[in-house]
Design a protein around this nucleic acid. Structure first.
Length: 517
RNA sequence: GGGCCCGUAGUUCAGUGGUUAGAACGAGCCGCUCAUAACGGUUAUGUCGCAGGUUCGAAUCCUGCCGGGCCUACCA
């Protein structure tokens, strides 16, 4: 079955300097939904996430914790693996930059860049802030009244530091990058980010320092082990390490170039400028698309550790339930925009969209079926216009969701599904199967069949977003496991099939009783 | 300083030249009673940031201004 179309989606590898927060959860969630959708749609999917474990910060943090860097990385990496279970993600692999195969890939890539003449030895010099661990250009610093020079942005003291460094000839790539963007308009999304990158590259590029000698926790530069590779060159390479690079006969190489790198908007330059330049220089095809999503704020406030308003995804799930959180994050905000996490909005979506509209639709239909149809899928009689209209709306959903997810428009995909949920609720009221029970049981059965069939189609498409809840609903419709992929989208419910007793899937969220004080 | 984007009902947004500007949530009223006190119908909301201009016609195009965001460059 090697003829199936592949789909390779990646999260950034997360820096183990930090514990997982809503931003990490959001990025991986988006990838998870795409991976699940594509699998159900018959694609040969590879979904990769992992951790970035090198760099001076890790080296220092490890020393402070009295651990070897590797032991420290091992420890922190675990919290990102735990998030996978907590959020029900479905990655095919979890990569770590400290794996031997990754060293091989980085060094092979480096050698290619060197062979191509895109790497040279120079000197990295600038105003260095020890506190920020960053170099600043002269203009970013200022000499204070005490005649000490400080970084304008952070106020930290800086000192002039020079160290030997290898450089990547990025300056030579601006024109070729622009040509690449031109030829691949889908490469950067959303559009506003694309404009940003274009104007950045049009402004000219400077060569990029790609090695350091001031610390040693990293991938050694081939032939000059005093240097370790710049963390971003190291980190980005993970995407091809996974596919076996430099061994293009590896079984996973078929997944390259990746269909999508999902990233936060803060690291767009690394993915949209540096990465394609590295790859083109090394003679490797660049990825097909980079999507930069936005940030969350918390009740209108910027999230920061110092404000203490960091959102812990595990806590969210404990409060509102896993699938409601997954739904909310992708439904509430047009994907690509910044979003505001509001407790009131979260509860609104949970109670309004999930409990009242969708959950209650399933419940009201299935309980009439249970009571009237002997616990079986009801019989299907002749269809009237109202029936075919609703069924047609449901049937059209697969193509709609497919189109929206090609563009990572999760919010629009969900809106389309919920349009049909609303349509189904109106149909229930219009057809009033409880009244038909007394006058025309056969017609009642047809109405219930139409509804059950509509719920089946909607729920098949809900699976990638809320896998657990969708499975429970499909169980209640007695849809066999083998008929939950989209290849069975048109395999209608068979009248007479035995059904289990219905059970609510999305309980309403009730405010915890206020503590009297 | 340059560039990009945004400012539309109480709220979140859709609408990018053409009849009385839409949706959802929230609010009021009515109906239903199968269902998780859920569902459906219906009503009301708006100087479409401000001011000019182009046009038979502008939320939509142009100019300026005000307000907000993002990217980027820095001044001597």
């Amino acid at each position: 079955m090697s003829s199936r179309k592949t789909y390779y989606v990646t999260t950034p590898i997360y820096y183990v300097n930090d514990v997982p927060h809503i931003g990490h959860a959001y990025t991986t969630l988006a990838c998870d939904v795409l991976a699940r959708f594509m699998r159900l749609d018959g694609r040969d999917v590879h979904f990769l996430t992992g951790t970035d474990e090198h760099g001076q910060k890790i080296e220092k943090a490890a020393a402070a914790a009295g651990l070897a860097p590797q032991a420290f990385a091992d420890k922190v990496s675990v919290s990102f693996r735990e998030l996978i279970g907590a959020m029900n993600y479905s990655p095919d692999n979890f990569i770590r930059t400290t794996e031997p195969r990754h060293y091989r890939a980085c060094q092979a890539l480096w050698e290619k860049l060197e062979e191509a003449g895109d790497i040279y030895l120079g000197k990295y010099a600038g105003w260095y802030s020890v506190r920020d661990e960053t170099y600043f250009v002269e203009g970013e610093t200022e000499v204070g009244p005490d005649s000490k020079r400080r970084a304008l942005s952070t106020g930290a003291e800086v000192e002039w530091v020079e160290e030997p460094s290898y450089f990547f000839r990025l300056s030579a790539w601006a024109e070729r990058l622009l040509a690449f963007y031109e030829a691949n308009p889908r490469f950067i999304a959303p559009e506003s980010r694309r404009n940003e990158v274009l104007s950045f590259v049009r402004g000219g590029l400077q060569d990029l320092s790609v090695s350091r000698t001031s610390f040693s926790w990293g991938v050694p530069v081939p032939g000059d082990p005093k240097h370790v590779m710049y963390v971003w060159l190291d980190a980005l390479t993970n995407y091809i390490t996974e596919c076996g690079y430099p061994d293009t006969s590896d079984a996973l190489w078929k997944f390259w170039p990746a269909d999508l790198h999902m990233v936060g908007k803060d690291i767009i330059r690394f993915h949209c400028v540096f990465w394609p330049a590295f790859l083109m220089a090394a003679g490797v095809a660049p990825p097909q698309r980079v999507f930069a999503h936005g940030w969350w704020t918390n009740e209108g406030q910027k999230i920061s550790k110092s404000l203490g308003n960091v959102i812990d995804p595990v806590e969210l799930v404990a409060t509102y339930g896993l699938d409601p959180v997954r739904y909310f994050l992708l439904r509430e905000v047009p994907f690509g925009n910044d979003g505001d996490f509001q407790r009131r909005a979260m509860i609104g979506r949970l109670n309004g969209d999930l409990a009242n509209a969708y959950g209650n639709l399933c419940q009201r239909v299935l309980s009439i079926v249970a009571r009237n149809c002997g616990g079986q899928v009801p019989g299907k009689g002749p269809l009237i216009d109202a029936d075919t209209a609703l069924l047609e709306r449901a049937r059209a959903l697969l193509a709609i969701v497919r189109t929206e997810l090609e563009e990572q428009a999760f919010h629009r995909a969900l809106a389309a599904l919920w349009d049909v949920v609303g349509e189904a609720n109106r149909y229930v009221d219009a057809q009033a199967p409880w009244a038909l029970a007394k006058t025309d049981p056969a017609r009642r059965d047809t109405v219930l069949w139409v509804l059950a069939e509509t719920i089946r189609r909607v729920t098949l498409l809900v699976q990638p977003f809320m896998p657990g809840s969708a499975a429970r609903i499909l169980d209640q419709l007695a849809v066999p496991e083998a008929q939950r992929a989209f290849s069975a989208f048109d395999a209608e419910l068979l009248p007479g099939t035995a059904l289990p007793a219905p059970q609510g899937v999305f309980p309403r969220y009730a405010e915890p009783a206020k503590a009297a004080s």
